[in-house]
């Protein structure tokens, strides 16, 4: 226990105000309890991975973060303040969070470049020229500078997901939310997306990542949260979770995935 406490002490930016803090979050769909009571924090510059069996509430928690889902209990703090109740307030919060979806959700009627500029243009009222300039730089960053005028349908899954990351980054978010960003991809394109995410982490982006890519989580995550049936069974530094899991359920889950350390 003392070693865990020490590791938590060593947690990145542990002394700072967390960017996102979940305090006893509860989420129900009607009678069904999707999240029982979840308490966790995400510090600035950290990569926090949410892992656990399918249906355990990972996506749900991620979606409560930017208020795509309402919570029924507990408190969710962003930048030290509870999520606002007003629609306008929630929009402001969403502008400061980027989200990447399992199915990319690129806008099929818009070119790659327009996909990236539409957010800043519409929401931040950035000028066309400025938005384009930023979009081109972002496309370059995700290695797709030559695809600016293509439509999403003409890109591979991995390319589409990289565009989706660029689209989210265009809003210059303070935290990025990823919901199984590689689960819908062909194996050969998973690596290119994970590499972009890894670079983003190295640049100091705060990231919350729901993933089944255990190698990625082990190498990139600062903190790992293990879910099971709507609750956290264990959380800690990646090294602890993967090399020395404390909870039975964590061990079961990892061995189920064929993780052998």
């Amino acid at each position: 226990m003392s070693t865990v406490a020490a590791q938590i002490q060593n947690r990145k930016n542990a002394d700072q105000t967390p960017v996102v803090e979940y305090r006893s979050i509860r989420k129900q769909y009607g009678e069904f309890v999707a999240i029982g009571s979840v308490t966790a924090r995400v510090n600035k510059g950290e990569v926090v991975c949410l892992i656990g069996p399918s249906g355990s509430g990972k996506s749900t928690l991620l979606r409560t973060t930017n208020a795509l889902e309402q919570i029924q209990g507990g408190e969710l703090l962003f930048d030290g303040k509870p999520l606002p109740a007003s629609k306008a307030g929630i929009r402001q919060v969403r502008q400061r969070m980027g989200m990447v979806f399992q199915n990319f959700e690129l806008f099929p009627h818009k070119t790659v470049l327009e996909n990236i500029t539409v957010g800043p243009r519409t929401v931040l009222k950035v000028s066309e020229q400025e938005a384009r300039k930023r979009a081109v730089a972002l496309l370059d960053k995700v290695g797709l500078a030559d695809k600016a005028d293509k439509y999403p349908a003409n890109l591979s899954g991995g390319q589409q997901q990289r565009v989706a990351i660029a689209r989210a980054l265009a809003m210059e978010p303070e935290v990025m939310l990823f919901d199984e960003p590689t689960s819908a991809l062909d194996p050969e394109t998973i690596g290119e997306v994970l590499n972009v995410m890894k670079r983003l982490a190295e640049e100091g982006m705060t990231m919350i990542v729901v993933t089944h890519e255990m190698t990625f989580a082990r190498r990139v995550a600062d903190w790992v949260v293990v879910f099971d049936r709507g609750n956290i069974v264990e959380q800690g530094p990646a090294a602890q979770i993967f090399d020395n899991p404390q909870a039975e359920r964590t061990r079961d889950f990892l061995s189920h995935l064929g993780w052998d350390g």
Partner: peptide
């Protein structure tokens, strides 16, 4: 039009109206 399209627009900080006009209606029109 898939629900995810609206969510992607909302996640960027668009209002429901902006999401409808910029993202959903143009696709629905086709």
């Amino acid at each position: 039009i898939r629900r995810g399209q609206t969510e992607a627009a909302l996640a960027l900080g668009m209002s429901h109206m902006e999401a409808m006009l910029k993202i959903i209606l143009p696709q629905a029109a086709r």
